[in-house]
């Protein structure tokens, strides 16, 4: 097994393109976007499909890459999260095929 860094960013859908641009510019090898269904935070619940604009929907971006590009994006993503709703975490993970990342 080979060690990599996994980045998980839960962010509002409207900021998705901004987050993806930051990841791509920093040279991460790839990412996957998933829809978030519902959640709870700061004393209130949120859920998808609340309104037709879908402006309050949240998405999850998962990226597994080498440590260097992930470290490169953290400052920019921090700036993005100063403006937009979201949370970010990173973790060390093991992958089977390192050439994929």
């Amino acid at each position: 097994m080979h060690e990599k860094i996994r980045l998980e960013l839960i962010i509002e859908r409207m900021a998705l393109k901004r987050a993806c641009r930051i990841l791509e510019t920093a040279g991460v090898s790839g990412y996957t976007v998933l829809p978030a269904l519902s959640g709870y935070g700061r004393g209130s619940r949120w859920q998808r499909d609340r309104d037709l604009s879908a402006s309050q929907d949240m998405v999850v971006i998962i990226s597994i890459s080498d440590e260097s590009p992930i470290r490169n994006v953290l400052l920019k993503l921090h700036e993005l999260l100063d403006q937009h709703i979201g949370i970010l975490n990173i973790a060390r993970v093991e992958v089977l095929r390192p050439e994929r990342f």
Binding site: E12, M14, A15, L52, S53, S55, H84
Partner: peptide
């Protein structure tokens, strides 16, 4: 508005 403007506001005024 509750379709076009909310989406634009999340981009223009996320705060």
């Amino acid at each position: 508005s509750y379709i076009a403007v909310p989406a634009a506001m999340r981009l223009a005024m996320p705060k």
